[in-house]
């Protein structure tokens, strides 16, 4: 029989999981790019990969402490944003899309190639970089919590740190978007020539936006690897598309949207794939193998993304009128 209580519990765990926080941060970065500035960044997976590898390589190969590894990741992300932005931010929006997606793939290929195996671990990736972070944990060892939310000290520490960063990032973005800076940014989304004619250095603002949103993605990438290992295959284009789904689910030009969107996305995804897997095991879907049951989640995400854009482009939190992309 299908154990619905277990499915619900498993889904509830996703509500505050570090992965949810990581995707929320990356989606918030994308909200700054796409929702507020109108930059079509299809390389958010690349920014996340830089966070992951920047942190892991600094820790493992260079033996840096946590704070320095974080700074290296952020620094690398800024450099990546500059490399992407300098040639493309003057071009039409769709060129940026293609160049960012290409750049993210280039990064993934570089992280995967055997040539740099000693540093990147090639296709097998990296692990064993969590010690420094775990050592910072002030929570005494033991298990805490209730129901599905019972974790050990490391897991709680990770969750607290992850969500604190999400909240700080959200407050930062919120303050920026209600300032004159945010007004310029939103103006650029509407018509950059008009903003240029008003004496604003559009190129510079777009670059700032690209860097800021990219750094959020990079921080998300660091949180993403703390409960797991760094594996290059995780940073494929599909990751970026998942983040777009989250963003559009919540609302592209909103601050809360990406965060709640990430929670809804992961809870629903866990519930649906949990249900399909268990129902398949219980023989509810004759003709479906367990491997096939696992693949249905991607099909569902794809269909949800299409339906969202067509029927509720403003997302859950978006103002019907303030669509990021009615053109």
């Amino acid at each position: 029989m299908v154990d619905f209580w277990q499915i619900i519990q498993n889904a509830a765990i996703e509500l505050i999981s570090p992965t949810t926080a990581a995707y929320a941060l990356a989606a918030l970065g994308l909200a700054i790019h796409f929702g507020y500035t109108g930059l079509i960044n299809f390389g958010q997976a690349g920014f996340m990969a830089i966070g992951a590898y920047g942190y892991a390589i600094s820790t493992l190969t260079l033996g840096f402490p946590v704070w320095a590894s974080v700074l290296v990741g952020i620094g690398a992300s800024v450099v990546f944003a500059l490399i992407l932005g300098i040639p493309t931010l003057r071009l039409r929006a769709d060129y940026l899309a293609i160049v960012t997606i290409a750049a993210a793939e280039i990064l993934r290929l570089i992280f995967t190639t055997n040539t740099l195996e000693a540093v990147t671990g090639s296709a097998d990736g990296l692990s064993g970089y969590k010690g420094g972070f775990a050592a910072l944990n002030p929570i005494p060892p033991g298990n805490y919590g209730f129901g599905p939310f019972e974790y050990n000290a490391y897991d709680w520490f990770l969750r607290i740190v992850a969500w604190t960063i999400v909240i700080i990032a959200a407050l930062l973005a919120w303050q920026l978007m209600r300032s004159p800076w945010g007004r310029v940014i939103k103006g650029i989304r509407e018509d950059e020539d008009a903003v240029r004619a008003l004496g604003k250095n559009v190129y510079f603002y777009k670059m700032q936006s690209l860097i800021l949103g990219g750094v959020f993605g990079t921080l998300g990438g660091m949180i993403f690897i703390l409960p797991r290992a760094v594996v290059p295959a995780n940073y494929a284009t599909t990751l970026t598309f998942f983040i777009y789904t989250i963003l559009l689910l919540g609302g592209a030009a909103t601050i809360l949207g990406p965060i709640i969107g990430s929670m809804i996305f992961w809870v629903l995804l866990s519930a649906v794939s949990g249900f399909v897997a268990r129902a398949q095991a219980a023989g509810w879907f004759p003709g479906m193998s367990s491997v096939q049951a696992g693949q249905t989640r991607f099909i569902i995400v794809g269909i949800v993304l299409m339906l969202l854009v067509i029927f509720r482009p403003q997302g859950i939190f978006g103002n019907k009128k303030e669509l990021a992309f009615v053109k």
Partner: peptide
């Protein structure tokens, strides 16, 4: 600038705004 209010459209026109610096913002 369609999805900005008329007032925001106007304010965007002003020169030398301190709050347009990202850090000051």
């Amino acid at each position: 600038l369609n999805l900005l209010s008329v007032l925001d459209n106007m304010k965007l026109g002003a020169k030398g705004q301190k709050g347009e610096n990202m850090f000051r913002a």
